[in-house]
Design a protein around this nucleic acid. Sequence first.
DNA 1: ACCCAGGTGGCCC
DNA 2: GGGCCACATGGG
Length: 225
Amino acid sequence: MVNNLYEIYNKLFSYFGKQNWWPAENRFEVIVGAILTQNTAWKNVEKAIARLKEKNILSLEGILSIDKNMLKQLIRPSGFYNQKADRLKHFVEYMDKKYKRNLDLFLNRNTEEIRRELLSINGIGFETADSILLYAGDHPIFVVDAYTKRLCKRLPLRNIDCDNYEEIREKFEKELSREIGNREKLIRLYKEFHALIVKLAKTYCKKKPECKECPLKEICSFWRV
DNA sequence: ACCCAGGTGGCCC
DNA sequence: GGGCCACATGGG
């Protein structure tokens, strides 16, 4: 019986291999992707990002200077484009006013401070903030998403509310950091683990018949019910 | 014609 | 403090 998160990571890694997340050319692109992918299929985000690149405005200055209605039209394929245009504008205006348009100045500080600040920006919740911290800022924060919650509900984890974002994040961080002492290695593991959970969910967690191929079939409660 | 996707915030009780 | 709901597009 396996009920240790590091073992689950190892099972997923041996089965699926390296995922190399986050797919982006630079920090700013990670942040834009994190906002655009809110409750949206990544395929649609790719289209929106490609359109921003075509117009040469996928940069802090670019998003800052483009007309908001123009921005809405460009990110249209990623859905919720009215609020997402507002959220992108919010973020870059904040960086403009408080950090001289310098992302490094913003991200190279104490993790908890950045996290609090990100969460105070309208349109950035737990998952978006933590994706930015981990994948754009290289901070040791574990990203929890709907798939992670679903996985937790199906695994034999004790004493934990699987709908509570912070509880799950703290559990993963506590257990994994106990196994991995080296900070850089831990960050790499967090990046891969989150990506592997997404990969697992997309591949095997939709229909029950898929479960017999799943690398976690022995411990997952889903297919047995 | 549904249902889902790498969420978030606002409103209501 | 928890349960709904709107937000929008594209693919199965």
